[in-house]
Design a binder for these strands. Sequence first.
DNA 1: ATCTACTAACTGACTGGTCAGTTATCAATA
DNA 2: TATTGATAACTGACCAGTCAGTTAGTAGAT
Lengths: 209, 209
Amino acid sequence: MSLPAGQPKFRRRKADRPDEIVAAAFEVFAEKGFAAARLDDIAARAGVSKGAIYLYFATKDDIFQAVVEQGVAPNLHNLAALAAANPQTFPDLIRAFAKLIAQVAATTPLGGILKMVIGEARNFPELARVWHDRLIVPALGALSAAIAAAQARGEIRPGDPRHYAVSLISPMLVGVIWRETFTPIGAEPFDLPALMEQHVETLLRGMVP
Amino acid sequence: MSLPAGQPKFRRRKADRPDEIVAAAFEVFAEKGFAAARLDDIAARAGVSKGAIYLYFATKDDIFQAVVEQGVAPNLHNLAALAAANPQTFPDLIRAFAKLIAQVAATTPLGGILKMVIGEARNFPELARVWHDRLIVPALGALSAAIAAAQARGEIRPGDPRHYAVSLISPMLVGVIWRETFTPIGAEPFDLPALMEQHVETLLRGMVP
DNA sequence: ATCTACTAACTGACTGGTCAGTTATCAATA
DNA sequence: TATTGATAACTGACCAGTCAGTTAGTAGAT
């Protein structure tokens, strides 16, 4: 019995497999965390057998690494795009920055990856370092530098630029984490763009002399 | 050989064991995450055998639950203390609130527990709900109500009170998460009290009419 | 065009190790 | 000496990683 008669039981698609596996792995890791994620689940979601995964990745750790690193890349691109934008007034620069972050948070799975990095930083310090060195420090550094420059021009009151930068972006991060953590259990969600707009406008009012 | 001769090889201390086990479990969970934490490690750190744990807790899940719930209780106490404080001007209330949070973050292992809740919310929705219902919603609600009242008195500009509340506390949360996630891998730490003070003063400037 | 020989992508049953939870037994206290 | 807190050896389930075998696709011969 059970001769499929027609559909082959698998297709050879060497080129597409890695991305599909990483995509499936992201979902499962984001849902269960690293340790509780089963390779059989990842395989099933990727429409492939567990053995096939090992044709493309050596260990479970390697898959996790690929997931996190692919989560960094597009954000780096966005950051570069912002840096290339023509410099308007400082408040407009900040508004553009906030809008970009809100867009990234809405479009990409940044929240899920952030959650994973937070949760597994002790077990995978190299991954936390990748995120820290390649994404967070550049972003925070660029923002701090812009603030410091505005202070030098007298547009912004004195104060630690790095602290100002954290003040600016924190609600976005908290909002994203909230979405990943508490919204699934029925908590009232936040309107992230609205939250961010009110926050930026209020903080800017407090930052100008 | 190896007759202990003198010290007994264990002592019966029924009353103290549960707290010691919970304390040890907190450390291991905070370090490794729930799934990667081994009961043998928890037992060893509590100075007890694995079997002894099962005299006081039925399952690993129960231990985790005890850890998270014990992390909520002292904060509830702090919150109540603040609510009982005599109401000064709104900015002073906010400053007191910020100072309390900073103190809690410095004194208690709130950061480690927060990390655990974020990481395991999907696997333990009941725990996320405990935190949400018993700690976050009351705290956020009280702060929002204070802001709304100040708005009604004309001391604060219009705007969503809940969003203002998130704006106020977010840098603290981000700072705590930063301390748990990136400081251990060598990232530059934040001076949390200084960050929070600058943030609150700046935001307050932007919130008053 | 059709067949055939070959490659390699893919499968799925299996293994070895790990670890949550159990139990037979011991030893400290009342 | 009866009770019970505590131990340590044990069990069974689970799962990352392996590998012998299967099948899709392909190139070369007819």
